[in-house]
Amino acid sequence: MDRPLIEPQSLAKSCNEALILACLEEGPRHGYQIALDIEEKGGGYFRFNHGTLYPILHKLEKEGLIKGAWSDEGPRGKRKSYGLTAKGRRYVANLRSGWREFIEHFLEVVEAEE
């Protein structure tokens, strides 16, 4: 894997990327849907400005982890939706175990010894 799974120096960014990729694992979505889904499932912890979505989505698209596709939705006009690529699916699988490991280590450090 040529891309680091988690970048501790920019944890918020890594976290947002992971949330977006995990959300897209369920199927293609429009930008605003991604933000709403994450907010809905996040129980109030992952409320982020929708404007910050675009740099992340475009970066992931450039890296080939997701693929954007324009579709004409009649009176609603053109809409761009994003879906995971095969490379993205493989990456998400690794990402999940990476985050699990990261959180385990994090808890080991912060939890008080009994």
Partner: peptide
């Protein structure tokens, strides 16, 4: 909700 901060814009341009 869609306000793009200067930081987000700079990141978008960089991408």
């Amino acid at each position: 909700a869609f306000d793009l901060s200067d930081e987000a814009l700079a990141e978008l341009v960089r991408v």
